[in-house]
Nucleic acid binder design. Sequence first.
DNA 1: TGTTTAGTTCTGAAGCAACAGAACCAAATA
DNA 2: TATTTGGTTCTGTTGCTTCAGAACTAAACA
Lengths: 149, 149
Amino acid sequence: MKDEAILKDKVEKLGVSIEKYGRTPIEGRVFAYLLLSDPPYRSFADIVEFLNAGKSSVSNAVNMYLKEGTLTYRTFSGDRKRYFMIDVDGWKKGFEKSMSSFNLLLEDVLEFRAESKSKEFNDDLRQLHEFQTHLSDEIRKTIDKWNKS
Amino acid sequence: MKDEAILKDKVEKLGVSIEKYGRTPIEGRVFAYLLLSDPPYRSFADIVEFLNAGKSSVSNAVNMYLKEGTLTYRTFSGDRKRYFMIDVDGWKKGFEKSMSSFNLLLEDVLEFRAESKSKEFNDDLRQLHEFQTHLSDEIRKTIDKWNKS
DNA sequence: TGTTTAGTTCTGAAGCAACAGAACCAAATA
DNA sequence: TATTTGGTTCTGTTGCTTCAGAACTAAACA
């Protein structure tokens, strides 16, 4: 099988896995393509052509990821095009963001339950909150450690 | 405003927040109800009535959570009904599970990229993988620590 | 100023997810 | 054995998501 055919196959499979994380089929494939391709940056037209997708679909998917911070792009002098690529650092920071927004949700619940009588459940929730906070700290520490080295 | 109306309102709001985590509207509301109600266990009929939802919707949502391990139930002697409640421990373990399945995905990508030339990107991905592994370990450690105390 | 290019926005079609209500089933009770 | 109860499965509807292609826009270039 030809190299490109192998890649296409792999992109489809990985794309489906990525859908499980709450992405649409096209979104999954765009991310998969940028995860797998060598070099890891591709132009808008590259993506459209490789995926056999509509321009609007790719435009929406790419902008979604740019806004989310998991995709970024680079340019080359004398070339108008943008070359999109995965922002590994932004991806990493996304974990921290989702953790802390989860923690806000838990805090909200705990406040609402303040005068409820089910002590055991409340204690469990508080422990879960502590657990998440601990993890968020750990994430922050690890990111810091990296940025220094 | 009456207590139950306040709770209904809160369940709707929290339900919407929970939808953000990839759940359907009904699923969000079921989980929200069990997070907020006092006591924190409720029968099938309670849930149907409180949410003004169809039995099939609630049945599907509850079974989905049971299978996932984030919901469990208790019973009372002389009462056929099951009383559903959030399984905080199962919820916690879910994080570890999702981390490690994410890591499998990354490993798959890294293997595929083994002979690619974009060293920088590959290194970034490897670092992300290390980072996740570190966090998984941390989660496991924290869960162990709890189970002992 | 006219043309090309890179990418966005609009529009409409197709398919699928979410849901309610009814029919159903199996275990417990009478 | 007949009935009730707790819950599941089936069926059809509604409406939303996803998507492609065409029209469009704005910047760069000639």
